[in-house]
Design a protein around this nucleic acid. Structure first.
Lengths: 212, 212
DNA sequence: GATAAAACGTGGTCTGACCACTATGATTGT
DNA sequence: ACAATCATAGTGGTCAGACCACGTTTTATC
């Protein structure tokens, strides 16, 4: 018996989908509460356990947060703990690591391209000022740099790749502080050639992947 | 009554953890079968529903695969759904058309970089041969090109961005067929400057975003 | 009015029951 | 002996109902 399982067999996946639509339709934002498990179960005509499977999966993904006694909320996603999992799980093959390192670098260079062409002088000024304080490490530096770039999609992609890279223990060697500062200054002056040279020769030197 | 909840309240998270250890300890590899839900439930002394919540979460992450009537298997980590999911959830409403087009181009250029440095001559030959047939459009051409590049992460990212770009009706203007063919030939000869020139001036000309 | 107690709502977990599907082994037919 | 068939057991998929633990809200009490 049962039941015309439309397309996505597996109820919990349908619930994920419905949830996604619901969030979009109702314009829910991070922090907002979503209906209770029992209500979802009723509204979607599925068992509560199926709803829970969907919610638990989304929770592990860091997309929602549940607080016992209170409810389930959309999460402002960041630091999903799943990532450490992935790292220790099945991420330990060198090919993946190489791809991660390579991709991360490419995204950083892409970001530099965009910044050179599109970033406002003010944002570049303030970034340079921030860099001159010297209060950063490789990771936080590029995190900040990616923020300066106006392409939010690129920023998000870098963030994800970076997270994965961390999980896989792919970390770049910390370069000389001055190199990072010089990069910021070169960016501010929109010196394309110099910027790229600093990145390649002084910051990402000696890394397995060479570009250009 | 419960419960000495060691550290990670939430049983399903403990199950995830236990599973991870089990996989590591037993040296299980992609394709291998993991114990059945009922057996796990018994071995870990937790309810089957908790086991299922853990498994469903890992499944949505793309770490395992379940086949009804057969069992649950470790999956090759290649096709992780993470980026996809994050995208469908939070990347939707933003007006990212520009970002999409821009990012897509950047990824294509990144791919070209990698190909110039890493692709085998044979794969470049066969790609050029394929291109000379002229049986493609802009999209399928770059889809094929991304396949030539050995960085599977990059390929996947492009594929996703491309999918979204389509959905957002961000499509590049089809260029002259000859331009695509010439690009393939330049790639085969590993002519970096020429390759990039063709891409920028003959294929992606007139697109909103200009790079370099 | 302030405080304490009870009621309610919510997530967390378990159990037991079916269903649907697959693989395996026994049965049967030739 | 071999092949096709069927029965069975094992597996994931789903549901319903029952508690528990915790937070919020309402109510009763002082």
């Amino acid at each position: 018996m049962t039941e015309v399982n439309g397309s996505t067999s597996k109820i919990y996946l349908e619930v994920v989908e419905k949830l996604r639509n619901m969030i979009e339709k109702d314009g829910l934002n991070p922090g907002d509460k979503i209906p209770s498990e029992r209500e979802l179960s009723e509204r979607l005509s599925v068992g509560r356990s199926s709803v829970r499977e969907a919610l638990r999966a989304l929770e592990l993904l860091g997309l929602i947060e549940t607080r016992r006694g209170e409810g389930t909320f959309i999460k402002d996603f960041q630091e999903h703990k799943l990532v450490e999992l992935l790292g220790t799980f099945f991420l330990q093959n060198t090919k993946v690591k190489k791809d991660l390192a390579e991709t991360k670098q490419l995204l950083e260079l892409d970001c530099i391209q965009i910044i050179l062409l599109q970033a406002s002088s003010e944002s570049l000024d303030s970034f340079a000022k921030w860099a001159e304080q010297g209060n950063f490490d490789d990771q936080s530096y590029f995190g900040k740099l990616l923020e300066v770039n106006p392409n939010k999609l690129l920023e998000r992609m870098w963030s994800i790749v970076n997270t994965y890279a961390q999980a896989a223990q792919v970390e770049f060697i910390q370069a000389d502080l001055q190199a990072y500062i010089d990069l910021a200054l070169a960016l501010r002056q929109r010196q394309k050639a110099q910027t790229e040279q600093i990145y390649r020769e002084r910051i990402r030197q000696g890394v397995s992947i060479k570009l250009t």
